[in-house]
Computed example of a mutant assay.
Amino acid sequence: MPTLIPAASRALAVFEVFAREKRELSNSDMARFLSVADSSCSDLLHTLHSLGYLMRTSRTRRFYPTGRLHEIARQIAENDPLTTVGREAVELLAERANESASFGIIDTTAVKVVAAQSSKHPLRYIFDVGERVAFHASALGKALLALLPREEALAALQRRTLRQVTPHTITNIDQILAQLEQGRERGWYETRGEGTEGVTALAVSGRLGGQPVSMSLVGPTERMERNREAYLRVLQDVRRTMLAGD
């Protein structure tokens, strides 16, 4: 059984206190918030100051975090394992199906594409990494919504006006919820011309590190219909490979 290290917990608690208080704090202030002796708190703050995580004002001798923690967090985020898995997933999908592939996560009121790879066909759909697509008009979005409890999915749909992107876009919430239920039963989700006319998307979803994720194949409707069963097998195989154990 792993052992908890109190000093590590206390160091992180220092930053939680600063985040809550949003002001410079003296050693005695911090000791009070952490419920520790002034001498113990002094050693902790001195260590964090020496490592560059805290600055100290010259006049009041109060402490406040520097930007170092933020910079480290930024560098970690740039190499987020979720993004790495997403890249691997779309590479596998595009290689096996030769259709444009995307990998998305929930981003408040929409889906954020965190990884994408285009098909090699001359006629293909192109995603941009960082692009945000609507829940109601994308297979990625419907696959993600289906992972949420009904009340949360309903709230996500109600947070913004459901825009009629194409003549085929479904904006009736009851119809969308019915689609989600149908998708849960069969294990995959679909949009036909709902986000872009003449384009069909197939998607599956799952959890990665507890976070809802979805992946899709997208292409011209005629080609997607012709290869539907093969593409669904590819999606399900890649899902099993990339999300095993989650």
Rank of each mutant, 00 (worst) to 15 (best):
T3G: 11
S9W: 10
A11I: 06
L12G: 07
V14G: 05
F15S: 02
K22R: 15
L25R: 07
L25N: 05
S28Q: 15
F33L: 14
S35H: 10
S35M: 07
A37T: 14
D43A: 15
L45W: 01
H46T: 09
L51V: 05
Y53N: 02
L54T: 01
S58M: 05
R61N: 12
R61T: 08
Y64D: 03
Y64F: 15
T66M: 01
R68Y: 04
H70P: 00
A73E: 15
I76F: 14
N79V: 10
P81T: 06
E88C: 07
A89I: 00
L93H: 09
A94W: 04
A97S: 15
E99W: 06
I105M: 05
I106S: 02
D107H: 11
T108G: 11
T109F: 02
V111E: 01
V113H: 07
V114G: 00
A115C: 10
A115Q: 07
S118C: 12
K120H: 13
L123D: 12
Y125G: 03
D128C: 13
G130E: 11
E131K: 08
V133H: 03
A134K: 07
F135P: 02
H136S: 05
A137R: 00
A137N: 06
L140I: 02
G141L: 00
K142A: 04
A146T: 06
A155W: 00
A155M: 11
Q158L: 13
R160N: 12
V165F: 04
V165W: 02
T166L: 07
T166H: 11
T169M: 03
T171R: 06
G183C: 09
R184P: 01
W188M: 05
Y189W: 14
E190Y: 08
E190P: 01
T191I: 11
G195P: 03
V199D: 08
T200S: 15
T200R: 14
L208R: 02
S214G: 10
S216G: 04
R228W: 08
Y231E: 06
V234Y: 04
R240C: 02
M242V: 04
L243G: 01
D246R: 04
D246N: 06
